[in-house]
Design a protein around this nucleic acid. Sequence first.
DNA 1: TACCGGTACTTGGTCTTACTATCTACTGGT
DNA 2: ACCAGTAGATAGTAAGACCAAGTACCGGTA
Lengths: 113, 113
Amino acid sequence: MSKQMTEMLKGILEGIVLAVLATRPAYGYDVTARLREQGFTDLVEGTVYALLIRIEQRGFVDVEKVPSEKGPPRKVYTLNALGREQLDEFWRTWSFLSEHIGQLRTELTEGDN
Amino acid sequence: MSKQMTEMLKGILEGIVLAVLATRPAYGYDVTARLREQGFTDLVEGTVYALLIRIEQRGFVDVEKVPSEKGPPRKVYTLNALGREQLDEFWRTWSFLSEHIGQLRTELTEGDN
DNA sequence: TACCGGTACTTGGTCTTACTATCTACTGGT
DNA sequence: ACCAGTAGATAGTAAGACCAAGTACCGGTA
């Protein structure tokens, strides 16, 4: 993972995971796998697990332990109402940034590119 | 500043400042003012100064002290070649994130909105 | 039985970054 | 002498992603 990407993911990864959970409930190993498919190939499992614990403690998800045929039981996370609110808030903040940064970029490329 | 925004700015603010400097050289007070006009109203000066010192130490900018009519001399920062490279890198990482997050959002809104 | 690889989750410590709060320093106006 | 505005610096805190290593469970193989 480039340092650039690592730093940029701070404060964004949480929203990404909430978005992933919004499509359907998932457990940690699954979330990591889906993100890696999505292009975040270097994402480390430890990061995802820590993040999931965090959003659980904040009450954004409901958790259910489901036995697995292979390995220890899975902790399946389901986005709840509070989590959906948080996801909305994430999209609002993201939209703001996205627009303003896009604007900056436009000014630049129109100015001297 | 919302906590959400604060966390999301980590790793992005540096790129934003580089982009601002790419439009034209500026000193800290000026950068802060321009960002506040741009919509980042709650951005604190201390953050910008610290960031400018950081990018100076990394060699992304050239610095020139210019006497001011009001107050102490200004430290005018000019983006140099290394800084422009870093800015390009920032845009690449930003584009990646922007695309993938946009994709996630589309999947969501098409699925259940 | 004993070992190994894949699945699944946990934890302790480090680094980076933005914030808060406070401080210095210089100028012009009252 | 004092104050507001300009301009910059800094110590300490909190948050988040990383790395590294570990635990636990299962099926297959020798």
